[in-house]
Design a protein around this nucleic acid. Sequence first.
DNA 1: TTCCCTACTATTGGATCCAATACGGCTAGA
DNA 2: TCTAGCCGTATTGGATCCAATAGTAGGGAA
Lengths: 227, 227
Amino acid sequence: MSVSSESELATSHRIAAALKEDILAGKYPPGVRLRQEDVADQFGASRSPVREAFRMLEADGLVNLVAHTGAWIAQLSLAECEEMYQIRERIEPLLLRLSIPHLTKNKIDQLAELADKMEKNREIEVFLKLDREFHLLSYAGAETALLGEMVHRLWNTTQHYRRAYTRLLANDGFKPAHYEHHLLLSAILKNDVDDAERVLFGHIRRTRLELAQHPNVFPENKNKQKY
Amino acid sequence: MSVSSESELATSHRIAAALKEDILAGKYPPGVRLRQEDVADQFGASRSPVREAFRMLEADGLVNLVAHTGAWIAQLSLAECEEMYQIRERIEPLLLRLSIPHLTKNKIDQLAELADKMEKNREIEVFLKLDREFHLLSYAGAETALLGEMVHRLWNTTQHYRRAYTRLLANDGFKPAHYEHHLLLSAILKNDVDDAERVLFGHIRRTRLELAQHPNVFPENKNKQKY
DNA sequence: TTCCCTACTATTGGATCCAATACGGCTAGA
DNA sequence: TCTAGCCGTATTGGATCCAATAGTAGGGAA
């Protein structure tokens, strides 16, 4: 998102990017331990860049580090996840507000396309991907340095739980989301930032309340279960 | 704030904590370069823990790292600083809302005391310290894992500019701040979270607008001016 | 005189080795 | 049989050495 793409030469950045990909894809579920040497072997590198990569992932909120003990894939309790959603409710409407005035017609067309695709689609993984694309694209107009990164982090850390509860909802629970996406789109088309903020707030809030009704998605006792 | 205090044995944590202290105290102004070896010598350690410390500080938003190039004390443009304040406007009222119901009488008394002390005081550095204490204490009731840290980060990264513009305002410009502090306090005493949110929002917003009137606090061209 | 190319040096990134810590199992005692 | 304390092993943290990069200065040609 930031420094990575341009000169992907640094080993530590490569490792961090690859691990991030895998974590977001659900390859490493929350609570799983990462051993430095394993990861180093996996990438054919020494442990030094792996340690740096762990620190980068920690900054992204994807990994928890404990001194002299190890690294674990970040795990959220229900309460923590609700907290993240409450933060999103407050922050993302702001980002959207800063973005809307600078959205090009091209991007708005893409948004419409994504909303339609999402509605026609029945695959969970595809929905997750399109939904993420849709929202992040709606923020693409914002010429913001730090807020954008912050929102990305929030999406990353909640990604796993979004997947889990999306699975539970199966396909019929998506209708409100689709409606909200279309409402958001029309607010954007009208350049009505206040309305867009309101719709987005409600969208995130509704998701939070639904998540809270599926506590089984979260670990019972949040002690680091090791292995 | 997180792992540090308990077993301050790890060298990298020690270095990070000490540097953080110095940066927040204004010892290293924004834009200054940090060389790994210098810092290592300064702490009688090798460069390995220094690099880890840099990564921690980067996560705190206090330092910017550029691959193969170096580490600089984070520097905000006016636009970026305004962004941070806009984020604060949205997030801190939420944190306050989560805190108020759990504030003990003892803590509320301390808040009142801090507000009074601040009003009587004329020293800039003391004002900065008390102001920070006041607000962070008002959040102390929140049993929050991540929002609290996020707010701390925002305070840290804007610390230097708060100092700079406080200096410009001298002593007579503080009155609105004092009024707002007392309003905040009375809202807290009444357990009126909505009102507290509103006052705090206005408090931060007013500061943002005042900051925007002092662009000279910020670097003209934001290119990394080295050393 | 100015611009570009090349080579040098200072600084960061990575690999390897050694030290310190933490966890688990074992033994001994009550 | 249960508990407390000790010790051994696995894993992380730190130091040192080597490699790679970038920024700079100097020289040559137009």
